[in-house]
Every structure is written in structure tokens, then in C-alpha cells.
Design a protein around this nucleic acid. Structure first.
Lengths: 354, 354
DNA sequence: ACGCAATTTGTGCTCGGGAACGCATAGAAT
DNA sequence: ATTCTATGCGTTCCCGAGCACAAATTGCGT
């Protein structure tokens, strides 16, 4: 009310020019004489002008269409949570004229991604958010977007060369280290540990291998290494899957399993539950329903939360802030590596998304 | 651009009235004939009108003054982080004309709170955020605020009877359970456990006792209870403090210590470090610098993160969203109970505030 | 000195919602 | 019958930034 904010009009008055001139100086669009420029600059130096974001936005308040290009939610609870985050973000931002269209592709099929990416591009949206799990195809897509001037935000999988507006995700290498730490906790006698990658193509496994590297790194650092770590890449749809998994689980020396994906975690947990085997420490990823169940029974000992819902939600928020409020998004927004246990899982389920 | 949002003007056109009338209907300020009301209501039922938040806010874009009434940051790293959160929130919201004045009181002195609370009230701000650690004094203060129509948000300590706009904090009871779980982890042989409350007046200890209750509850639920839990309330400024603390720490059967405050955690950690005693599991609260140091050396095994910075930041955000955007804040915003370890602490330090 | 073009500067409208204002009409009070 | 009041309803301006366009000024050449 009283000490009102400084407006362009005020600067104009102080500098003895018109608001049009101040506007041109502020936006560096030239057509200003040296003299006027000096006068305005001088005033700007003295006062702390902060444009009214609300007013600025009002005039350009049109509808903003965002496309979310995601792996299909129907096949995978992880991506279902992602889509939930997208939906919540849409509710949050719809009063600002933001609409979000979700395009789903098959996470095991590059062609499907290419097809949907093309569809997204043809639609000429105002912004795109995607989980670029196919490296090369994504890069080509980004090239298109950049040329068309469509801003895009990545989450889940980082492709720095893609130069996105922003990346939202976790530090996969360190999440492996956290997994290892939790494995080591109060379990120092040594034995065998298994790192498992399930159901994943080589294409999108860079960040899974990062997790494994981190996991191994932790034990490397403690030079008295009592553990033998083996890696297993199994595919549940292959006929020999169960046999191979059994072979790993039946090893009496096996002390722990670290699974690199949320879905893989639930698969392994189910097998352990079926065999009634609770003496192996199981550490995996994410609070998807099936993992939650096994966490409560104690089959799963720890989950590392990648927070897919929040990743998607914040991705949209960064995009919207850029589109509407012209705020620059952080280059990378790395989430904390959240350790989920029986006792704190409910507090995660009950907490709000911001 | 094309499928523009529905505006008041559109509703007016569809209903065959003027926008003034629609406005009156929307805001229920009467002075509308039954006939016009019917027409407008009918249109409103058919379409999904969402007011443009940006435009709505513009007209009332005045300065909003918020007062943050907090324990002094100079004496306590926990409250220093709180103040940081306030400052970051101020930066975030200053483009919207929000200014925040921090009033600090002595966390061990009720009179100091009363004095500052009065000062805050006299200032007639547009909103108040406070950590109401003195129960009765806070209630009186809230009464004042309610009568004056000044909205207030609480964090850290919940006083539901105070009927705040919103409470931001953690579930202290369950955080005790998490502490107990971490204590029990891989440590099942039994022994003695100490719960410590340091440096706290009885006044603001309700939530500390909650933590203790939660801690005990966890062990109560596992009926084969191998641990004997004792409680110690010590005050570092008392002459016998060191002696009493020593007596607890020297017990060879002591297996773990759970400290209920951030400051207390660092005090106990320092003593353990000085004595070179690393065979006792220490679990405490918050990533303040001194705790961080001891976490890295392994003196502290786990920290439960109450996230004071984020609590304050979000408190302000809820208040601002209410004041400016007329969004109703959540009644309670309980944070997840974050488990901090050596390996994930950096990811917390590096992550952004939202 | 004049004309014309190039540059500089100012004006005014837009965005959408909020609300004061003022006009018109109907009914009540004098 | 005339004044007064209450009610209904449309118009208009405001908020502050952005931007198009018109107006004003300068500069240059003849």
C-alpha cells in the first residue's frame, strides 16, 4: 500500500524520459540515444528495480501447451508414478493456462520412442519434458527441438550433451554408494553380494551401470574388503530366468542383493518372499506398491527413493517457470538420496509434493 | 493463443449480462436480480471457469509485509538454518512485493518471546510465521492475531489449538521410531540405550518427549526387548554436566545414544570424539555444521533431518500463496523423516530448496 | 534554408479481474 | 404527486509491463 514498489513509470519520471524509453533500455532493444541511456542507467544503478512478475506475465498470458514424452505407465509402476507427478503438476498450473499432453512410448522399443517424439514435435508445443532413455534417438530429437526453439526439460536420465533447459534427477553413482553403505551396515563379516540389473536393455542402462560403479566404489574405499561382488543381468521374460535367479539366491554365502531398478526390486523381492528367504539383505529402488508391501514384511530392507513423481512434478514446474515467469531453471536439480525404511516410509507416503 | 481460456467477459456474453454482473455473482456480493443470477449460474454450470490467477493478483498488487518470529539464530545453528530458509524465501518472493522482517527472541526466555511477539503485533504485518516454542505465550499471541485478522503460519512446533493457517514440520513421534529403528539396525544383542534431552527447558519439550515416546514405542512393539532404555535430561551450562555425561558414557554396556535435538547431538558427539569413543552408536538430529563433521568421522552414525531451512521456506511460501494467490494452505505439511548417512549427506547438502 | 530520411521518444492500447461509480428504474415514504 | 431510497446493472478505470505505432526530433544533403 504505502511504500509501493518501483515501477517502470517511476524510473521514467526519475530519469526524465518516457516509460517506452526505460522499457527499451531494460530490454536492450536499442533505439535509445546515448544521453537517455545514461540517464536511465544512472537511475537503475541507484535504485533496485524488480519488475512485477505478475504484471509482466499478464499480457502474455496465453495457453501454454506442454508435451510429456514418457515411457508407458501401464507396464511399469515407476512410470505410473511419474505420470501422477505430471498430472499433479497440471492441476497446479492449469489456472495459469498450462495444459499438458502425455505421449507414452514403449520403454523397450526405440522405434516407439522415435514415433512419439516425432508426433510431439509435429504438435509444436510450447515446451517438452521427457525421460530420454534412448540416447541416440533422444539426441536427434533434441536437435529438432533446438532448431524449432522449443525448450525441453529432461528427468530421470541425464544427457548433458543434449543441453536441456534443465535436468531433474538423482546422482546415480552416489546412489550406488548409498546402497553399498546400507548393505555394509552392521554386516561386516563378509560373504557374497549380488548386483542385479533386471529387465533392461543396454540402451538405457548407463545410469544403472553408474549405480553399480558407485556400489563397488564404496567397498573399494574400505581396503579390508570382505565381500565378493558379482553382477547379474537377467531378463524375466527369458525362459532360463527363474533357474538363473534361483542359482544366485541358493548360494548359502549370499549376504545381500542390490537391485538397480524399481521393477527389478519387486521381482527379486517376490522371489525371495516365495522362497521364504529373509536372511538376505535386499536393497532396491523406489516406493512402488509392490516394493512397499515387501518393505513392510521385511523382505526388502531398504529402498532408495528416486522420487519419480516429484521429478516429473518439478520438471514441469521448471518448464512453466521458464515459459510463463521467464525464470531460468537450474541446469541440474539433483534430488537428495532418500533412504526409505519400514519406519519412515509412511512419512514419505504422506508428505506433500511441492 | 487459439483456444483461449474462458474469461469473465465470455461468461457475460454467454449469459447476456455485463461483466460487472458476472463479477457480482462470482463473488456473491449481491445486487443481482434473480433473473440475471439464473442466467449466469446456468452458464457457470456448463463451463468450467477458472479465474486467471495472474490477472486477479495484479490489481491488488501491493506490498506484503511478513514478520518471522524466530528464536535467535546466533545461539543455535538449527535456528540459523531456519533463518537461511526465510532469507531464501524472501529472495524467491520479493519480485511479488513480499518483504520479510525477522524478529529474534531468546529461545530460553519467555519474556523475550512476549516482547517480540508484541512488537510483531504492533507492526500490523500482513502475515506472520513463527516457531511457537512457548505454548501458553504463543496461544495468547494467536488470540491477538486472530482478532486482528492477521494470518499466521507455524513451523517446527505444532500447536493445533492455535488454529494456524498451516503447520509445517515433522511427525516427532514417528521420528523417534525411526531413531529407534536405526539404533536396532544390525545391533540385536541388547544392552543399554540412552535417550538424551540437552539444553532444553520443559516449556518447549513436548515434541522432544514425543520423540522419546516414539523411540520407546518401537522397542515395545518387538516383544523380545533386549534393550534397557534410560532417559537423561542434562544441561550443559550446569557445573555437574560433564560428570553426569561421563557417567553415562562410561557404562561399558551402553550401546547407543539417541539425542533429541540438533544442538544436543553436537554436544554429545564432541564429548564422544574427545574421549575417542566410537563403539557407541549415536543418532541425532539435523545437518548442522558440527554434526556434519562428526557424521563424516563416524562418531555420529545417523542424523534424522528435520530440514529447518525447508520448513521455514515452505512456511513463507504457504503464507504468500494465501496472501497473494488466495490459495488455501494445507492444514499440516509434514515432511518425510529423512535418514542422513555418511554416503547420502552430500546429496542433501547439494540439493535445492523448492 | 528546406526537404527528406533516420533515429529517437512518447502515447496508448493490451492482457483479465476487481471494484468504484454512476445511471436507470421501481417502489416506498412524505 | 413528488422526493427519497434501494436495487439492479453496465461502464470505466486501475493494476504494471510490454509492445506497436505515431509523433517528434535530429541529421544530412542539396
Amino acid at each position: 500500500m504505502n511504500p509501493r514498489n518501483i515501477r517502470i513509470k517511476d524510473i521514467a519520471r526519475l530519469a526524465g524520459v518516457s516509460k517506452g524509453t526505460v522499457d527499451r533500455v531494460l530490454h536492450k532493444r536499442g533505439r535509445v540515444s546515448q544521453e537517455s541511456l545514461q540517464k536511465v542507467m544512472k537511475v537503475l544503478e541507484e535504485i533496485d528495480y524488480k519488475p512485477n512478475l505478475i504484471a509482466r506475465t499478464l499480457s502474455s498470458s496465453k495457453n501454454h501447451r506442454i508435451i510429456a514424452l514418457l515411457p508407458s505407465a501401464s507396464s511399469d509402476a515407476y512410470w505410473a508414478q511419474t505420470e501422477e507427478g505430471i498430472r499433479e503438476a497440471e492441476m497446479e498450473w492449469s489456472p495459469y493456462g498450462v495444459s499438458i499432453k502425455v505421449l507414452s512410448f514403449d520403454q523397450y522399443n526405440k522405434e516407439s520412442f522415435k514415433e512419439k517424439a516425432n508426433e510431439a514435435f509435429e504438435d509444436k508445443p510450447d515446451g517438452i519434458i521427457t525421460a530420454p532413455i534412448f540416447y541416440h534417438e533422444a539426441l536427434l530429437f533434441f536437435e529438432l527441438l533446438k532448431n524449432a526453439g522449443i525448450p525441453y526439460v529432461l528427468f530421470n536420465t541425464h544427457i548433458p550433451e543434449g543441453k536441456p533447459l534443465s535436468f531433474i534427477g538423482t546422482d546415480t553413482f552416489n546412489s550406488g554408494k548409498v546402497g553399498a553403505e546400507l548393505m555394509y551396515l552392521g554386516q561386516h563379516e563378509g560373504g557374497k553380494l549380488a548386483v542385479m540389473h533386471l529387465d533392461e536393455d543396454i540402451n538405457n542402462s548407463v545410469h544403472l551401470l553408474d549405480k553399480e560403479r558407485g556400489f563397488r566404489e564404496y567397498f573399494k574405499n574400505r581396503n579390508t574388503l570382505p565381500f565378493k561382488i558379482s553382477e547379474f543381468s537377467l531378463q524375466p521374460d527369458k525362459p532360463d530366468f527363474e533357474a538363473r535367479l534361483n542359482r544366485v539366491l541358493n548360494d548359502p554365502e549370499l549376504k545381500g542383493i542390490f537391485v538397480s531398478t524399481s521393477k527389478g526390486t519387486s521381482v527379486v523381492a517376490s522371489y525371495l518372499a516365495k522362497k521364504g528367504k529373509n536372511n538376505v539383505r535386499l536393497i532396491g529402488y523406489d516406493i512402488i506398491d509392490e516394493n512397499l508391501k515387501h518393505l513392510r514384511t521385511g523382505i526388502i530392507d531398504f529402498l532408495i527413493n528416486q522420487n519419480p513423481k516429484r521429478q516429473a512434478f518439478l520438471g514441469i514446474s521448471h518448464l512453466v517457470n521458464y515459459l510463463i515467469f521467464k525464470k531460468k531453471a537450474p541446469e541440474t536439480d539433483l534430488f537428495p538420496l532418500e533412504v526409505i525404511t519400514q519406519q519412515n516410509v509412511d512419512s514419505y507416503l504422506n508428505s506433500r509434493l511441492h
